[in-house]
Simulated scan of single mutants.
Amino acid sequence: MREPKIILTQDLVKLIAEIDEFKGRWDALKTLSPDRLDALRKVATVESVGSSTRIEGAKLSDAQVEELLSNIKMQSFNTRDEQEVAGYAEAMDLVFQAFDDLRLTENHIFQLHQTLLRHSVKDERHRGGYKTLRNDVVAFDADGKELGVVFETATPFDTPRDMEVLVAWTRKAIDEESLHPLLIVAVFIVQFLAIHPFQDGNGRLSRVLTTLLLLRAGYVYVPYASLERVIEENKDLYYKALRRTQTTLKGEAPDWEPWFGFFLRALKKQKDSLAKRLDREREQESADDALPELSMQILALFKAHERLTPAAIERELGANRNTLKVRLRELVEAGRIKRHGKARATWYTRG
């Protein structure tokens, strides 16, 4: 791996400055109650899990992802999509809980890959280990027929050496602060995906590692807004930017600008989305002062419960059933809680 020679355009410099300004203001911005911050994080987690798995071909909607995650401890995962969702959620949870201790090492990358594919039956043989077969990026037509190789990844023989070099460069760059942290993350990710070190799960793992590196670099607001959702919404641009940079990596002067541009703009959209959500939540907190007492009691129940049925709420609060129905309907219409199911099978979650 050559030492990157990077010259930034004025637009990219402005993007970095804007993202860093938000990072610096985060402590002042997160003035919401812990409950509301926790709710924001749960929404972002569902969006991240859903988007990252759909980018790779899964079909589960956010609502289906949310329901699966609410039962994750008691559920077996029968379909490939469910297995991938469960694995991604567990890998992200590991990063959120332990990022301070997860320094970038090959062993930690193996650990995250193992977690990511933990529930994937077809990946059992190769989870947590580098690839043994070629996995070049290929194109398919509408009928699923292979059209040809789009990008040649590292060979299985070269992969261990290439990953050792990439991890060593990244750690050295972080320790010596030789580049801005966001550029170090961007270089690592585009190189990681060019190597494509594992037989499967490389795209999903790259997004888990992005979150890990951003958290370790001090961008601690990342769990509250989904970068994966931004990528899913701009998937064509994502792949084009990757390919435009990756096809130049073996040349004398790699063209970093396509990938840097996409990556930094995605981070900007992520923080802009979070800023808007924070504004909405502050407005909602102000509106809470006008809520009826029973409505506040209903919302308080969701601090201890992921999901509640009308009967459970009635039992907990001892409220009049008809009044309770009115307050539940008002909270659903206001977006404070979500209704699932119908008639006697109705249940609610936090909005």
Rank of each mutant, 00 (worst) to 15 (best):
N202Q: 03
S52K: 05
V190W: 07
G251H: 04
K303T: 15
R118D: 12
E106D: 14
L116P: 11
K271A: 12
L209G: 01
L133H: 14
G318A: 00
S33G: 08
A343Q: 05
R280D: 13
L32K: 06
L166N: 07
G129H: 11
K325W: 00
A311D: 07
K342C: 02
R204S: 04
G50M: 12
L60F: 06
E176P: 04
K268N: 09
S52M: 08
I19Y: 04
N71Q: 15
Q75W: 11
D175N: 10
I174K: 13
F263Q: 09
F140I: 09
R80F: 09
H119D: 08
D38A: 13
E21Y: 07
H108V: 07
G128D: 04
E176L: 12
T309H: 01
L212C: 03
A142L: 12
H196P: 08
K30E: 13
Y238Q: 03
R244I: 01
F140W: 08
Y219L: 03
I231V: 03
K30W: 05
R265S: 11
A304Q: 10
D93Q: 15
S52V: 08
V165W: 13
H340P: 08
R54D: 05
K145D: 06
V222H: 02
H113E: 03
Q83H: 06
K172A: 11
G87A: 13
F263C: 10
P181L: 06
K240V: 11
G144N: 06
F192T: 05
I313C: 02
V332I: 02
T9C: 10
R350P: 08
R282F: 10
E252C: 02
Q284C: 01
S295C: 05
E146D: 03
S51L: 14
A287P: 03
L274D: 11
A154L: 11
G87C: 14
R265V: 02
H340T: 04
T248Q: 06
K303M: 12
V208P: 04
G129S: 14
T245Y: 02
K338V: 10
G318K: 02
R336C: 01
H113W: 01
V138H: 11
R315I: 01
V190G: 08
R25K: 15
L133C: 07
R118K: 15
A58Q: 05
G261F: 11
R127P: 00
D38L: 13
L227F: 00
R161M: 11
F22P: 09
G261M: 09
L193Q: 15
E124L: 07
R265D: 09
A266K: 08
E47V: 12
R307L: 00
D175P: 00
A266S: 14
Q191E: 14
E56V: 10
I6N: 11
Y348E: 06
T323Y: 01
S178T: 15
A253W: 12
A58S: 15
D20Q: 05
K325G: 02
D62W: 05
A253E: 12
P310C: 00
R41Y: 02
K145F: 13
N71Y: 13
S178G: 12
M163Q: 06
K269M: 15
F140M: 12
A345Q: 15
A300E: 11
Q97K: 14
H108Q: 09
A168C: 07
E56A: 10
D279Y: 06
L213G: 01
G318F: 01
R41G: 03
